[in-house]
Structures are given as structure tokens and as C-alpha cells.
């Protein structure tokens, strides 16, 4: 079935376009464009100096109902503990096996279980999850999270509270800059299985169009920004 259906659909498309299969030279031009993607219209909110971009990233994330915190390098563990205490949340946290979170996981005030790699997958019992973002997008306050052995994707979705650590050096302007990071991260391999662009906590308006935060995914999203970019630190 599938081979003939495939041919029938492709033939139907070509009949409607009043041509046969593309000549190889045209196909080659299109393929070149695919291998060297060009940006289209990039809005001004995706541009700016380091300080502007980091400030805009945090402001846009808050506008999307995330909470944010800026901390000097090395203090992210204490910051997460403070956040959990301030909101009367348990100190038990499920932290991705990502080595960039080893310092946080060593914080004495947290009761840490690691997830991913040899530690297994996140579970429904993980109430607080901690992940590390590949990038932050200033344009919309969006976190870019890429799955991998040490970055299990369900940790972004199963917990009630999702804490994401992002470095100021990884805050970029817009989606195109995020794609650049992603392509560099993947190298010659296909993209990671799951790439999450997360903008605020989960929500729904499906009951009488009344906005409710906390639908099926996390009810809270907390961003811990590590101020490791001298050019982005507030004067």
C-alpha cells in the first residue's frame, strides 16, 4: 500500500504543478538552500547588546509567568534551595545527570536524586525537576532544552515544579541564534530526539477561556540565570 500511495501522492502533486519530477539542477539548488539556511525577517527584539539581551530574556520569561533569579556562578544550588523554601516546596529534587548541574547537585541543603544516564528515567513521583538549558532566547523569554542521555526530556514535563538553569553566556537573541546553538550541539548527527522550547509554565484556556496555569505539564517554571557573562552583568 505505502509504496503505491507514496507514488500516487507525489504524482498528484506534480500533476497539479503541471510538471514531472524536478530536474536535477533545480533539486540541487533547493538542496543547497536546505544545507545553508538563511534567516527571513528577524524582529528587533531578537537583537541587542549582551546586557540588553539578558535583561530582555528575563523580562519576557516573567511576562510568560515564569519566575526568575540571577545568581553568581557557583551559587545555583543555594538559589534553588532558597526558592524551594520560599514556596514551601520539598527539598527533594530530581536533577538531570548533566555534568553542568554537578555543582548544584552537591549543594548541602538539597536532597538530590539524579535522572538520566545510569540513574534511570524521571518518574511521576519527581515533584521538582532541575534541568540545564542549551540556550535562552531573549526574543520571547524562551528556554531551549535538548534531550540526550544526561538530559531526559520527561524531566521537563512530569514534575509539578520545573527549575531550569541557564548561563548568561548561553542567552542569545532570537530563534535563529537558538537554531545555530542547536546545530552546533548536534554536529553531523540528526537533531536530539526532543527539543523543547519552553516559554513559561503549562497552561490552558479550555474551560470558558479562563487562563489557568498548571495544566498537564509543570505548574511552575523557575529560571536560575548564572551570571557568567561579564558583558551582561548590570552596572
Amino acid at each position: 500500500m505505502s509504496q503505491s500511495a507514496r507514488q500516487a501522492v507525489l504524482d498528484g502533486i506534480r500533476a497539479s504543478l503541471r510538471r514531472g519530477p524536478l530536474p536535477p539542477e533545480t533539486a540541487a539548488v533547493l538542496d543547497t538552500r536546505l544545507s545553508r539556511p538563511e534567516p527571513n525577517v528577524v524582529p528587533a527584539i531578537a537583537l541587542g547588546d549582551r546586557r540588553t539581551l539578558v535583561a530582555r530574556f528575563l523580562a519576557a520569561a516573567e511576562a510568560a509567568a515564569a519566575t526568575t533569579q540571577r545568581v553568581p556562578p557557583g551559587e545555583e544550588g543555594a538559589a534553588v534551595a532558597d526558592f524551594l523554601r520560599a514556596h514551601a516546596l520539598p527539598a527533594a529534587v530530581a536533577v538531570a545527570a548533566d555534568p553542568r548541574l554537578d555543582g548544584l547537585a552537591a549543594a548541602p541543603m538539597l536532597c538530590v536524586t539524579r535522572r538520566g544516564a545510569d540513574h534511570g528515567a524521571p518518574t511521576d513521583a519527581d515533584r521538582v525537576g532541575v534541568s540545564h538549558a542549551l540556550a535562552g532566547l531573549a526574543e520571547t523569554g524562551t528556554l531551549l532544552l535538548a534531550s540526550g542521555p544526561e538530559c531526559p526530556a520527561t524531566l521537563n514535563m512530569l514534575p509539578d515544579v520545573h527549575v531550569v538553569v541557564v548561563r548568561a553566556l548561553d542567552v542569545v537573541g532570537g530563534l535563529e541564534d537558538g537554531w545555530d546553538r542547536l546545530r552546533r550541539h548536534a554536529g553531523a548527527a540528526p537533531l536530539p530526539r526532543t527539543v523543547h522550547l519552553v516559554t513559561g509554565p503549562s497552561r490552558t484556556g479550555d474551560i470558558e477561556q479562563t487562563l489557568q496555569l498548571g495544566a498537564h505539564g509543570p505548574r511552575r517554571l523557575h529560571i536560575v540565570l548564572i551570571d557568567d557573562d561579564p558583558a551582561a552583568i548590570r552596572a
Binding site: 537533531l191 526532543t194 527539543v195 516559554t199 505539564g217
Partner: peptide
């Protein structure tokens, strides 16, 4: 400006 989740799915787990 962006929905809460924009998710790219590429193949099965690695």
C-alpha cells in the same frame, strides 16, 4: 508571543 511549549521531535530515542 510563544506558546508554552514548542516541541521538535526527530526520530525515536537515541
Amino acid at each position: 508571543p510563544m506558546a508554552s511549549y514548542t516541541t521538535l521531535s526527530t526520530g525515536p530515542r537515541r
